[in-house]
């Protein structure tokens, strides 16, 4: 669905590259997590996925980006946006309509969808993010987490096949964070291709694949377990590793377990088996 081929970018000739030689693939229905320290080029990468870079934000761009098999350099941003929805960090700037209902209608209106269909899509999207009660609400009455849910819903009404979220929860409280990630996981289960960019790796530990960026280059790519087995490397380049993963890395190093675990439930399964072993 997403295909980057040797993409490099810098804002101007006299500046260094923000991203260098980026190539990767995201398959249909896959969940890709992207992480990296501040300034590693994560946000720039997101803005390339629908062509905002280099079409709106200009610079020196080389390489090719394919979305659903089509080279987006040859497409208008509004054409790519029909397939790929992009959520940014700050929900305030993504809600620019006077009511929630209008916010959700804005995308499909631009796509030229018929009135009845828009109404149905609004109800469907609000239900998906659990915000049915807020259809008539004004954006300034919503909390940060509610705003971000509406921002997601306002892309869902465009029925994209891919959703890209750039640090969607970094200004939110833990409760809202969990809610947002549950929504993202639900969408992924329903078959949507999802890319989540996070500097906190907690929330991408359930991804199919993780890509690690550092200083504009891809330094690691693999399954969460492959990535988290190298916890020391991640910490060295400035990425926070979930503490439970760090604990399991200690156990792995000393041979108590065969592989690391990423969650409490996994830990209990693994540790029980191990303790039984030690009983034998």
């Amino acid at each position: 669905m997403i295909n980057f081929k040797e993409v490099s970018f810098r804002y101007s000739k006299n500046q260094g590259h923000v991203l260098r030689n980026i190539s990767f693939n995201v398959k249909k229905g896959e969940f890709l997590g992207i992480s990296g320290p501040s300034g590693s080029g994560k946000s720039t990468l997101c803005l390339m996925m629908n062509g905002i870079i280099p079409k709106t934000i200009e610079g020196e761009f080389s390489g090719e980006v394919y979305i659903d098999g089509e080279d987006i350099a040859e497409k208008e941003i509004y054409e790519t946006s029909e397939k790929l929805g992009l959520i940014l960090q700050n929900p305030e700037s993504q809600l620019f309509s006077m009511t929630v209902e209008e916010e959700l209608a804005f995308g499909p209106e631009n796509l030229g969808i018929k009135r009845e269909e828009i109404g149905d899509r609004i109800s469907w999207a609000l239900k998906l993010v659990g915000m049915e009660r807020f259809r008539e609400a004004f954006p300034h009455q919503l909390s940060g987490g509610e705003k971000q849910k509406i921002a997601i819903a306002s892309l869902l009404t465009m029925k994209p096949e891919i959703l890209v979220l750039d640090e969607p929860t970094s200004n939110l409280d833990p409760k809202s964070r969990i809610e947002i990630f549950k929504i993202v996981q639900k969408l992924n289960r329903k078959g949507m291709t999802v890319v989540v960019v996070e500097h906190e790796t907690n929330f991408i530990s359930s991804a199919d694949k993780i890509l690690i960026l550092n200083e504009g280059e891809i330094v690691r790519y693999g399954t969460p377990k492959e990535i988290f087995r190298e916890a020391d490397f991640l910490k060295e380049i400035g990425i926070r590793v979930p503490e439970i993963v760090e604990f399991s890395n200690y156990l792995l190093k000393e041979g108590y377990i065969d592989d690391i675990f990423l969650s409490v439930s996994e830990a209990l399964e693994v540790l029980n088996v191990e303790s039984r072993k030690s009983l034998l």
Partner: peptide, 11 residues
């Protein structure tokens, strides 16, 4: 401006 573009404005 970015948010408006991601919502297919201009089509």
């Amino acid at each position: 401006a970015i948010a408006i573009e991601t919502r297919a404005f201009g089509k």
